[in-house]
Computed example of a mutant assay.
Amino acid sequence: MRELQQDIMSIILDRGLAPGDPMPTEYELVEELGVGRNTVRESLKVLQSLGIVEVRHGYGMFVGHKNLRALALGLEFHARMSLQREGHEALDVIEVRQALESALIGPAIDAMSEADRQALVQCVEGMEQATHDGAKSAELDHEFHRLLFGPLSNDLLMRLLEVFWSVYDKIRESVEHSTPVARHNAQVHHQILDAVLAGEKELASQLLSSHFDALRDSVRNATS
């Protein structure tokens, strides 16, 4: 089955098809690959779940657009399951996100406009006012990190960060609940903001890294 999935992906690549382009029909794939229709259909279902193939009922099959939903669901499930044991997968997710954000904050600062910086200021002000509202505080935390890296105009990066955020948010729900935690989180983001506004790239990177260190400690405490 996996070999057949690879064969279908090779057809897409060899024909130079782009996202949104029509795919060969099931019948054409059966004829070209020399396998049964049910086998092709099952392989297409897997590729559809991965976002490689898109099925539009009544129109046919098309090459999928970038879609990391399957990755997000898998990471989220295993990270949350790991919180019931040693938390290794959850810690891995935090480590990868920490590495990405800490490494890219410098280029992000260089790319920021005055409007970008003002949006960050408003976001942190909102976080400071929402410390008693866990859902609102988490939403603004998410927005802060989107605003930080949006100026890079890197679509893949933003999609990856969205994947990590969805996992990270579930992890945080499992280990953080209190108003003091939300208040401390707002303070940390204000410190990051100050470093960003001052153009202090190394300090901003260190603060981001420390921010994730604290969450890692929370996971370890929750699973010890």
Rank of each mutant, 00 (worst) to 15 (best):
M158W: 01
K136Y: 01
M1F: 07
E176N: 11
Q118I: 09
K170C: 06
M1S: 14
K201D: 00
A108N: 04
L140T: 15
S10L: 06
E86M: 07
E176D: 05
V63R: 12
S153L: 11
A204D: 00
R220S: 07
A111G: 07
F149T: 10
V96S: 05
L83F: 07
V46C: 01
R159D: 13
D14S: 08
M23E: 06
I192L: 00
D169K: 14
R41I: 11
V96G: 04
L83N: 10
S166L: 02
A204P: 01
N67T: 13
T39C: 01
S205P: 00
A115R: 15
L104G: 07
V53L: 03
Q98H: 08
E162Q: 12
E32G: 13
H65V: 08
Q5K: 15
S174W: 02
V175R: 12
A108C: 06
L47G: 04
R117W: 03
R56I: 14
L13G: 03
L148R: 09
S137M: 09
V30W: 03
H65G: 13
A103N: 09
L120R: 04
L73R: 15
L160F: 09
L208Q: 08
E114Q: 11
A70M: 05
I109K: 00
I105R: 00
D194R: 13
A135R: 14
M127W: 02
A99W: 05
A18L: 04
D213F: 01
E202Y: 03
P24A: 14
D7Y: 05
L157A: 11
L29E: 05
A103P: 00
V40G: 06
L148M: 14
R69L: 11
L71T: 15
H78L: 10
E95I: 04
F144T: 14
D14A: 12
R220C: 04
N154Q: 10
G126S: 07
P19V: 11
N185E: 03
V93H: 07
